[in-house]
Amino acid sequence: MEPDILAPPQRVATRIARWEESLDALLPAMVDGANLLVATWSLRAFGGLIKAWSMPEGVLPMRNFTDVHLVAVVGRRFDVVVV
């Protein structure tokens, strides 16, 4: 059975929460009508998603459900994201 991408294990949820706290401290808040937050991000090498929360050592590509969640954590802090 494949893992549920919407139900991260506790270790991943904890990592996501730490990322969110760090980003909250680093980035300005989105304020409707007061600012426009724009980000650019090269995800060229992001293909080949593996349906797992972590990767065994040496397995390529190194993209998994944890990576997807971390990209979303960053992306949702901006009004516009250019990929």
Rank of each mutant, 00 (worst) to 15 (best):
M1N: 14
E2C: 06
E2K: 07
P3A: 07
I5L: 13
L6K: 14
L6C: 09
A7Q: 13
P8H: 09
P8Q: 10
P9W: 04
P9M: 02
P9D: 03
Q10W: 06
Q10L: 14
R11S: 06
V12L: 07
V12S: 05
T14A: 10
T14I: 04
T14N: 07
R15Q: 13
R18D: 15
R18T: 11
R18N: 15
W19L: 14
W19P: 01
E20R: 15
E20G: 08
E21W: 01
E21G: 07
E21T: 09
S22A: 13
S22W: 06
D24A: 04
D24V: 00
D24K: 06
D24G: 02
L27E: 09
L27Q: 02
P28D: 04
A29F: 10
A29K: 15
M30G: 03
V31K: 14
V31T: 14
G33S: 12
A34E: 15
A34Q: 15
A34M: 15
L36F: 03
L36Q: 12
L37S: 11
V38K: 02
V38L: 09
A39Y: 00
A39I: 00
A39M: 13
T40F: 14
S42C: 10
L43W: 02
L43R: 09
R44F: 11
R44E: 11
R44M: 04
A45V: 02
A45I: 00
A45C: 10
F46Q: 08
G47I: 00
G48M: 10
L49Q: 05
I50L: 11
K51E: 13
K51L: 11
A52E: 11
A52G: 09
W53H: 05
S54Q: 11
S54W: 10
M55K: 07
M55A: 05
M55W: 02
E57G: 02
E57H: 12
G58R: 03
G58T: 03
G58C: 10
G58W: 05
V59M: 10
M62V: 02
M62K: 10
N64M: 01
N64G: 00
D67F: 01
V68D: 13
H69P: 10
H69Q: 15
H69F: 05
L70N: 08
L70D: 01
L70G: 03
V71P: 06
V71K: 06
A72N: 13
V74R: 07
V74T: 04
V74D: 03
V74H: 09
G75L: 05
R76W: 02
R77G: 05
R77D: 08
R77F: 04
F78D: 01
D79P: 08
D79K: 01
D79C: 08
V80R: 08
V80G: 04
V81G: 07
V82R: 04
V83C: 13
V83Q: 09
